[in-house]
């Protein structure tokens, strides 16, 4: 019944025995103890489970573990620097109060990071549209949107300073 999946998670190679029906979210949470990735629904709507697979955001609750054999997966636990310095997006969420209960936060942050990879200068409308697949019940999205726009501005500012 079980099968073997080899993948890299947050820079660490690992090999895990899974059932063919095991989801990536279950692999991360139950097999690897990476409980930062949350599961908030069963219809692939809420986005609490978003991780990066080969650099792109992906809902881990609708990805089979066997689909990520050989892939590079980054979870919320792998986003901050090794010395604990928060990723600019994490810092922007903290600075702008972009989280309350924290449950949707990992998926929101991972999704937002991918947005800025795709579009470094999104408009407010583009940010709101991008978040279509992430539900938050606490913040009314107001400060999440603010945090993402703030992060984008900070990153552009840092890039200009470097040039």
């Amino acid at each position: 019944m079980s099968t073997t999946v080899s993948l890299t998670v947050n820079g660490k190679p690992c090999t895990v025995e899974v059932e063919p029906r095991t989801l990536l979210s279950a692999l991360l949470r139950d097999k690897l103890g990476l409980t930062g990735t949350h599961v908030g629904c069963d219809t692939s709507q809420c986005g609490a489970c978003v991780v990066h697979v080969d650099g792109k955001s992906r809902k881990s609750c609708t990805t089979l573990a066997v689909q990520v054999d050989g892939a590079e997966v980054t979870t919320i636990e792998g986003l901050a620097a090794a010395d604990g310095t928060l990723h600019p997006m994490q810092e922007a969420f903290r600075e702008n109060h972009g989280l309350q209960c924290g449950f949707c936060t990992p998926g929101m942050v991972m999704s937002a990071v991918d947005l800025l990879h795709t579009n470094p200068s999104p408009t407010e409308a583009e940010v709101r549209e991008w978040l279509e697949g992430n539900i938050c019940r606490c913040t009314g999205y107001h400060n999440i949107v603010k945090a993402i726009l703030d992060c984008a501005a900070n990153l552009r500012g840092a890039q200009q300073a470097a040039e």
Binding site: T35, T37, V39, I76, A80, R94, G102
Partner: peptide, 17 residues
Amino acid sequence: RRKEDRRFLTGAGRYTD
């Protein structure tokens, strides 16, 4: 700025599940 945010932002929150 909230004291609790760091754990939630780094996946270190500890929910029942």
